[in-house]
Amino acid sequence: MATLKELTHREDRLAGGHRLCAGCGASIAVRQVLLGAGVEPVVVGCATGCLEVSTTIYPYSSWKTPFIHNAFENAAATVSGVESAFKALQRAGKIPADKKMKFVAFGGDGGTYDIGLQSLSGAMERGHDMVYVCYDNGAYMNTGIQRSSATPKGAWATTAQVGAAQQGKLQGRKDLTQIMAAHNIPYVAQASISHWKDLTTKAEKAFAVEGPAFLNVFAPCPRGWRLAYNKSVEISKIAVQTGFWPLYEVEDGVWRQTVKVHNRKPIEEFLKPQGRFKHLFKPENADLLAEIQSDVDRAWEQLQKRFETA
C-alpha cells in the first residue's frame, strides 16, 4: 500500500489534454488504477465510450501506454487477444522470456454490465492474465444518458423518463461485482474514486495476481447525474457512506469489507444532490424513496453475511 507521496513517483499514464467533461469520474478512476499498476509496462484496452472517444480523438492520444480500442462490447475479448499474443510471442522467443507486461481493459457500465458482459465473462472464465476495470457511472453517458442495467432504481434517464406514468428507472441495479465474484477468479473488488488508497491498493492487488481480476470502480458523471462538476469525488464518498456502494474485495474466494461504515447515512444524502433523482423528493414519491432505502439496506445486510469477520 503506497502513500500519496510514494505514488507521485510513479508515472501518471493518462496525459492531460483529453476531452472528457470537467469533473469526469472516469479519468480519475483511470489515473488511480494505473498508478496502482506499478512500474511494469501496461497495455490498455478500452471499450467504446466516453473514456475511449475523449482520450483518442485523432491525431491525439492521452495514453502514455500502448492502447487499443476495438468496439463497444468487446474490450475484454480484445485484451484477451493481446494477452494471448504476448504469451505466444514469448513462447516463440520474439519477446524476451523475462519480460513482464500487464494488461488492462476499461469499460463503462454500458460496455460492461450490458453489451460487453458476455465478452467479459468469457475472458474471465478463460483465465487470461488481465485486469478488467468497469468505470461505473450508471448509464450510457457517451450517447446521452440512456439507462443501463447499472442505473439505480428511480433514476431519470433519457430512456427511463419521469412523467405521470413512470418515475424514472423501474428496476434496481444488477450486482455485477457479485456476478464477477461468481466466476471464481483470483481477485474481484469494488472501489470508489473517493477512496484513493483503497482503490490504488486494490489495483495493485489486481495487477499482481496471476490470472484475471475485476475492479468495479464508482466513477460519477456530473453531466448525466445532473450534479455540480466539483462534486464527483464528494458524491462518491457519500455513496460509500450510505452503503449504496460498499467497498470490498473477494480475494481467492474470501470476501472482505475494505472500508467499514459504522453509521450508514440515509440514502437521501446520496440522491438529493443529483438532479436525476429530483422527482423522488416529491411527496407522492415518498414510498419509492422508502423502497430505495430498503433495497440498499437489504443488499447491505446480505453482503455483510458474506464478509469474513476476521
Partner: peptide
C-alpha cells in the same frame, strides 16, 4: 483462445493481430 462467441473470436484476433502476432 477458445472464445465464447464468434464476435469475441474476431475481437480477440484483432487484439492479437494489433499486438503484433
Amino acid at each position: 483462445v477458445t472464445v465464447e462467441s464468434e464476435h469475441s473470436a474476431m475481437s480477440a484476433c484483432i487484439g492479437a493481430s494489433a499486438a503484433g502476432a
